[in-house]
Amino acid sequence: MATSTATSALRSGLGGFLRAHRERLTPGDVGLPGTARRRAKGLRREEVAVLAGVSVAWYTWLEQGRVDTSRQVLDAVARALRLDDASHRHALALAGFAPAPGDARPAYDPELRAVLDGWPDSPALLLGPALDILAWNHAYTTLWPDPAAFPEDRRNLLLLLVTDARHQRRLPGWEPVAMDLYRHLRTRADRRPDAEDFRHLTGLLRSARPDLADWWACRSVGDFAPRTVDITEDGGSPRAYGMTLLLAPQPQDAAMLVQTPTHTAKPPAP
């Protein structure tokens, strides 16, 4: 079991961070019975220790910045303190742990979820810098295959367009769209040559479609231009949609792909 070797300053910061979160909780927040008289503010240390499965002495030392911890034990403490994802990641960083591979996916502002849902008739995706699909609205799943049906590590718009037959049936003219998305991707990737998400996607693309080697070798760049595309709906004929890539403020270089039926107004930029 790997144990962190955080500096004294980081350990002290972690202890203060955990203590602050402990003091915000009540017994009822974690399913414990309350008592009429409690001198301690928030949860007691022994209550957190029991919930996390550690000794009271060790948890006390952790808050005092006197001990290092394993990631597994810190995960248990985070669950006991009901830390949200951002707070959990911060605690791990203070303990000296690098993000796990699964933690590397970009986060996004929850308010962007409401932006997507504000387009009930326009299928829309929130995309990360490497075109990973981070979120989608209900209109998207009524027109396209549901992203939730795909493994998370393959939930990438460009990868799905060039490898998945269902996406290609929806968009018979997928090739120019995919090529322009790749140019958009290259523009961002060249600014972050060491980014793991870009390297991972490039490896998947080369492996899945070696016949498109000339695409992957192409160094041309450019922003994705708005266009009108024909999308084939279930049991119907192709229907024209306006396809626009809107830049989102969070995370950096994220974007929203919006597809608007041509008989409706184009959605405003968020």
Rank of each mutant, 00 (worst) to 15 (best):
M1G: 11
T3D: 04
T7E: 13
S8M: 10
G13R: 15
G15T: 09
F17Q: 10
L18M: 07
R19A: 11
R19M: 07
H21L: 01
R24Q: 11
L25I: 03
V30S: 00
L32S: 09
G34R: 11
G34L: 03
R37Q: 13
R38G: 06
R38C: 12
R39N: 06
R39Y: 06
A40N: 08
R44M: 13
R44L: 08
R44A: 08
A49L: 01
L51S: 02
A52Y: 04
V54Q: 01
V56Q: 01
D68Q: 12
S70H: 08
A76F: 02
A76V: 00
V77A: 00
A80P: 04
L81D: 03
H90G: 12
L92M: 15
A93L: 06
L94Q: 10
A95P: 09
G96P: 03
D103E: 15
Y108K: 03
P110H: 05
P110Y: 12
R113D: 13
A114G: 12
V115A: 14
P120I: 01
P120Q: 04
D121N: 13
A124F: 00
L126G: 06
L127A: 10
D132K: 12
L134K: 05
W136S: 06
H138K: 10
H138M: 08
A139D: 02
Y140W: 14
Y140M: 06
P147G: 09
N156G: 10
V162E: 10
T163G: 09
T163Q: 04
D164K: 12
A165Q: 10
H167R: 02
Q168T: 02
R169C: 07
R170S: 13
W174K: 06
E175S: 03
P176W: 08
M179K: 11
L181C: 01
R186A: 08
R188M: 09
A189H: 04
D190L: 02
R192Q: 15
P193D: 00
A195Q: 07
F198C: 09
R206P: 11
L212K: 11
D214M: 00
S220M: 02
S220V: 11
S220P: 03
S220R: 08
D223E: 07
D223V: 10
F224L: 15
R227M: 09
E233S: 15
D234R: 12
S237W: 00
A240G: 03
L246K: 06
L247G: 12
L247A: 15
D253I: 07
A254N: 12
M256N: 08
L257K: 04
L257G: 11
V258E: 04
T262L: 13
T262Q: 08
K266P: 01
K266I: 11
